[in-house]
Design a binder for these strands. Structure first.
Lengths: 233, 233
DNA sequence: CGGAACTTTGACACGTCTCAAATGCCGTGG
DNA sequence: CCACGGCATTTGAGACGTGTCAAAGTTCCG
């Protein structure tokens, strides 16, 4: 599944921290990239394994999760085009604390850690970008803690639907453009799969969303927002 | 409450990121520090406010929380001697995402952000230390997400007691050395105060802990660990 | 010593989980 | 291209954990 095509996505994307690199550094990055393809359901790396570089998503979507009680996964984030994963473990030099698995056929670029550390040493803007990236994720994580701890399953589901809609956009038919099972959704929220299904049915009955197979389309944003914020309680 | 005594705690403590500074930089740090005192219950900064520097705890304990539904606080971390708070907002140049409040009479050093950014620019080791600090916290936060989402209140309380014991140690009588109300504990776990009280009573009845006023002492570590990990389920 | 804040206990309602079974969907192989 | 098997989804019933409200008891601090 390895292909040695050079990838310009990473170094050129202003979304990634690599936007802080100088021209020479970008060229150096290009020269040291390795691209890989992953079929749906394949795993880049598992929790506990040693990883030796960053993975920058070129195409597709990945779910990032920790394994909890009874091997039940807890999804803590997603990664799609332009997102980087694996950086936490590389930078803190610890085993991977999450598992990364593709939700569809995907491609990623691998950037060896030696190169990353060289950039950090030489380019303080790059270091600062990395710092800001982790700080942003830290804040997101803290918000999630608050939400999970204080909101009901119903509220969290409403919020999660809005988050998914915003993160992945819509397909031609207006459905959220990501391929998640009901079980995946329950792993985001931290609840039973059946609870997700039941509340989704309610939302549909109330005209808030439309369902077609496993696809979900949001019909009434403001009401979902109200529910997610508990204004209706 | 401001006192201009220079503080050696920050720059000398190997626990903090300031351990990565050179000798000259440490001196520069010392020269620019400002120390403040906070009485029990006082607030360093509130969620949403602009903060202009790091706060390094010299003495005492602070709770760090986000305000959620119905103004209910959600504690996401603590800070005690050698810990730094405020860095996330400073580094990502955003308003504070948490409120920091002292649990006892405390002292902190304030380090202006201009100095921090100068150190980042000049000293890649310092930048790397900061990166690793945020990465570590990010992992902690992700673990917390998994725990809150998947564990019962009972399990989380057991886990929280062990965490508090490890974080704050014991006083002369063997009780956990931190001054938390039952409500504070419920704000860590994300549950009702009454639930905390009820389960604490059970734990006491089962001989796992001892209670004296609001103080809590752990008697049976291994059993609490079992409960927190759901091995007994 | 008094009052406010905190802790404790009880009763009850409700949300959510678990278990079970039926149905629907989809990819694989014949 | 269809049939099959397996996996995902859906629905129902019942049990259990947890939240809410109320009231009494206790501790802490001025």
């Amino acid at each position: 599944m390895k292909s040695m095509n050079v990838c310009k996505t990473c170094s050129l994307s202003s979304k990634t921290v690599f936007g802080s690199l100088t021209t020479e550094e970008s060229e150096q990055l290009e020269a040291n990239l390795e691209c890989y393809e992953y079929k749906k359901g394949e795993i880049i790396y598992k929790e506990g394994s040693r990883i030796t570089g960053f993975y920058c998503v070129k195409k597709g979507v990945f779910k990032i999760y920790k394994t909890g009680i009874d091997s039940k996964p807890q999804i803590v984030a997603f990664a799609q085009k332009g997102d980087i994963t694996g950086y936490r473990s590389v930078l803190s030099n610890e085993p991977a604390c999450t598992t990364v698995e593709s939700l569809e056929d995907s491609e990623v670029c691998y950037i060896p850690s030696s190169l990353i550390f060289e950039f950090i040493r030489k380019n303080s803007n790059f270091a600062l970008s990395l710092i800001q990236l982790t700080c942003k994720e830290l804040n997101t994580a803290n918000d999630l803690i608050k939400d999970i701890a204080q909101k009901t399953v119903r509220e969290r589901l409403a919020e999660t639907l809005l988050m998914l809609d915003q993160t992945f956009g819509k397909d031609e038919e207006g459905f959220i453009n990501v391929n998640l099972t009901r079980e995946d959704i329950s792993s985001i929220i931290g609840t039973a799969t059946e609870s997700v299904i039941r509340i989704l049915s309610e939302f549909k009955t109330d005209g808030l969303i439309s369902l077609k197979g496993k696809k979900i389309g949001i019909g009434n944003y403001s009401k979902l927002e109200s529910i997610s914020n508990s204004f209706l309680k």
